[in-house]
Design a protein around this nucleic acid. Sequence first.
DNA 1: ATGAAAGCGCTAACAA
DNA 2: TTGTTAGCGCTTTCAT
Lengths: 335, 335
Amino acid sequence: MSDRVTIKSIAKDLGISHMTVSRALSDHPNVLKETRDAVKQRARELGYVKNAAASAMRGEQTQIVGLLLPNIVNEFYARFANTMALACEAQSLQLVIHLTGDNIVNEEQALERLHQIQAQRVVMVPTPGKSENSVLHLRSTSVIQLIRQRDMGRPTSAILVDDSAAIRSAVTHLAAQGHSRIAYIGADSKLSSGRSRLAAFQDGLMLANLEETPELVCTGAPSNEMGQSYARRIIGDRHATAMVCGGFEISNGALSALMDTGRQSAENMSFIGYGDPSFYAWVGGGVSTIRVPVESLAHKAVELLTARGETPSEPVHSFDAVLITRNTTQVLSER
Amino acid sequence: MSDRVTIKSIAKDLGISHMTVSRALSDHPNVLKETRDAVKQRARELGYVKNAAASAMRGEQTQIVGLLLPNIVNEFYARFANTMALACEAQSLQLVIHLTGDNIVNEEQALERLHQIQAQRVVMVPTPGKSENSVLHLRSTSVIQLIRQRDMGRPTSAILVDDSAAIRSAVTHLAAQGHSRIAYIGADSKLSSGRSRLAAFQDGLMLANLEETPELVCTGAPSNEMGQSYARRIIGDRHATAMVCGGFEISNGALSALMDTGRQSAENMSFIGYGDPSFYAWVGGGVSTIRVPVESLAHKAVELLTARGETPSEPVHSFDAVLITRNTTQVLSER
DNA sequence: ATGAAAGCGCTAACAA
DNA sequence: TTGTTAGCGCTTTCAT
C-alpha cells in the first residue's frame, strides 16, 4: 500500500526523466547502454513491478483469462482447470476462476466482473437457463463454451462432447447382459447436453427393443445431490436392475448412493457412470462408465485460447466419448 | 476492444459533464433525482461497466485474491479451492489461481504477477526451497501460508495441520496389528511439514518399541510420481508389511501403485494414506488414512481473508488431523 | 446541483 | 539520446 515503486520514483531517484526509465525498462533502442543498465539495476534493487492497471488503461492486453465452472471438486472440472492453469502459467496469463454452481445468476455476475477487469478470453460451462443481456456486454471478449452450448447472441466457439454413440452402447450393452429395466438419471431439457443424452438413451432402448418406462427416466438440474437422491429412489423401488448416468456430478452422486446403501444392493444393480475419474477403476472392482476425453478437451481449449486469430473458421469442436465396461456391468448371473 | 462504454461516452450521449455521470452512478447526494435516473437508465441501456483498471489506478482496492497451489487435481486442494472460490464469489472478489507444481520458480513468477495486478491478499502453499527476494516485493499484500510454513522475511499468518498425533497413532495402530516392518513415504526435510511428519513417524516407532529401518524411510520431493515409485519399490522389496504416507500427492500415488500391482499384493500390505478424498472410503473396502479437516482449513482461510484487520494477533492457526482406520489396516491374520 | 481541473502509472508522439 | 506533453477512465478538490 505504502510506497509502490514506479517509473517516476525511479526517475527521481536517478535524477532523470521518467520517460527514459520507461524506455530503458522496455528495451527501447534509443537509450544509452549505460543509462539503460543503470536504470535496470536500480529498478531491480528497488523491486519495481510494472503496474498492470496502468497498462490496461492504455489499452494494452490484460493477460486475463476467465474460467467459469459449476464447481472444481468434480475430477473432470478439476482436471480441466488444472490443464488450463498450467497452460496459462506457461503463457504468463492470469487465470481467474469463478464457480457458478450451475446457477445463471452467479454466471452473470461472474461475467460482469470479468468484463470489469477486461478479461481477454473466457472459457465457460454455460449454466442452464436463458441468457439475459449478460453476454452482450462482453463484446471485446472472446468466449469459448465447454461441454454445453447456449445461444449467446453472438458467435462463440464451442468444445463439445459427442456422447450419443457411447450412451447408446451403454444401453445395448446392458440389454445384452439381460437387463430389461434400465433407469436413466440425467439433466433436464434446459441443457443442450441434457436433451441429447436423453435422446441417446432412448435411442439405445429402441435399438435394444426395450419399452421406455417413464418412471425410470429421472431428469432435473444436474447436481451431486440430485444424482444421489434419484439413485436412492431407484435402488429402493427395485423397479430397475441397471442405471445409466448422464452427467459428471450426477454420476458421482448416484455412485455414492450405491456405495452407501451397502454391498448387497450394489451387487444387484448394474451401473454405468459418466466421466471417468481415476478412482472409478478401483471402486467395486471397477465402475463402468462413459469416458469423456478431458485432456483432449482441455488441450483444444488451450489451443483456441492461444490462437490470436479473431474468429475461427470452425467454431464447434466435438470429441467422442467412449463406453468403458468394467465390473459394475458384468453379466447378471455371474455376479 | 472496439467501443467500451465509459462515463465520458455516456456524458456526451446525454450532453452533460462526465462528472455528473460519475456522481449519479455512485449515488452521490448532490445530483438531481431526474438526472440520476436518466443517467442510470442510459448506462444500463448502453451496458456500462466500470473500468476496474481505472479504479485500481486511483488507489482503490483491487478485489483480487491470489491462490497458489501445487495442483488442483488432488481432492484436498480441489476442495480447498472450491471453498475459497465460493467465498470469493459471495464477496465479489476475483480469485486468481496459479499452480506452482511445487516449483519455487513458478511460485516466484506467480507472486510477481499477482503483485503486478495488485492482489490484496494471497493464500499459498509454499513450495520447497529457499525464498529469494520474491515476497519482499509484495509489501502491500497480506499473505496466508497454508499447510506448510516458510520464512517469508516478514510476518505472515499461517494455517497449519497438526498431524503428529495422528501419524504416531498410525504407527502404533499398525504395530498393535502385528506389523514390525513399517515403511514411510513422505516429503524430505526441505519442507517444515516433511520434517515434522517424519519426526512423528519416528516417534511412533519409538512408542511401539520398533527399530527404525533406514531403508524403509523414503523421502523426497512430494509428488504423485514419487509416491508411486517408492510404493512400487516397497511392494517389490517385500521388506515391509505396511506403509504410511505423509502427503496428499504421495498418498494418491502410493495407493495407485498398490491398486495397479494387483489384488494379492494389496491384501498383503497394510496401508495408511494421507488426506481423505471421498473415494478412500470406497476403495479396497475402505482405505485407512490420516484425515485432514479441509473444510475447517478453508473456512479459516476465508475468515482471515475477510478480516479487514491488518495484523492478526494470532498469526498461526493449527488444526488437528485424525487417524481413520478402515479395511486396509485390519489385523494381519484376518485378511 | 453541476462543471472544470488535476492526477493515479504508463507510453506514443512530438520537441529539443 | 533525452525530455515534455497528453491522455487512457475515474474520482477528489475546488470552483461556479
